[in-house]
């Protein structure tokens, strides 16, 4: 349950180095999760910075009702949804898309390290956003159904159904690409 909660309390008490610890701990996972929403790793990185800026500027109160990472990912999801809502009104093509693949590979190597998990995450990114989010949070972020439900602002039952459909979609995707997998 710790996951940076004590660091955030120290940051609220005035210790800026505590924020550095939080960034170190969550920057990659948050970026990859937000990438499942915005489908652009550069944008996901910018939004990840926005999550930390939000912590510094507004200093939202963290309660122990959930883990710190659940709370932080929920903030990131809200910011990403706001971004999508605003960007849908002004559709732009980022020049950073040219460098997207290399950035994404760096992050994947930092967080996943395993080649098979990297290929699996890339298959996830081709699913629709909700399927991609739920599988990433459960199998790459390590969140439980309750935590995933809190981050995605859904009920636990909805997350269970969504997970089932997401796994079906992923299986179809991997089979079409000749990927061999073991049933979980």
């Amino acid at each position: 349950m710790e996951n940076g909660a004590s660091s955030y309390r120290r940051f609220l008490a005035g210790d800026d180095n505590a924020l550095r610890e939080i960034i170190e701990l969550h920057k990659d996972g948050l970026a990859l999760y937000l990438n499942t929403i915005v489908r652009n790793i550069c944008t996901a990185e910018e939004l990840t910075e926005e999550v930390f800026v939000e912590l510094v500027v507004k200093k939202p109160e963290f309660s122990d009702r959930s883990s710190f990472s659940t709370w932080l990912y929920a903030i990131g999801r809200n910011i990403a949804c706001d971004y999508i809502r605003k960007s849908s009104r002004r559709r732009t093509v980022s020049i950073d898309e040219l460098y997207q693949m290399s950035d994404e590979e760096d992050i994947e190597k930092n967080m996943l390290r395993d080649e098979q998990r990297i290929r699996l995450r890339r298959a996830l990114s081709e699913l629709d956003s909700d399927h991609s989010q739920v599988l990433f949070l459960k199998y790459f972020g390590g969140f439980s159904n309750e935590e995933t439900a809190e981050i995605m602002n859904r009920s636990k039952r909805q997350i269970e159904n969504l997970t089932y459909r997401a796994k079906q979609a992923l299986r179809t995707k991997l089979e079409s690409e000749g990927f061999e997998y073991e049933e979980y």
């Binding site: 960034i23 920057k27 910075e49 800026v53 500027v57």
Partner: peptide
């Protein structure tokens, strides 16, 4: 991909700018 220090500096800079804009 930015490292932790770069992200930290960027976050602090943006925070100061946001605070000024808010003021």
């Amino acid at each position: 991909m930015k490292n932790t220090d770069e992200i930290f500096d960027s976050v602090m800079k943006k925070s100061r700018e946001r605070a000024e804009q808010e003021r």
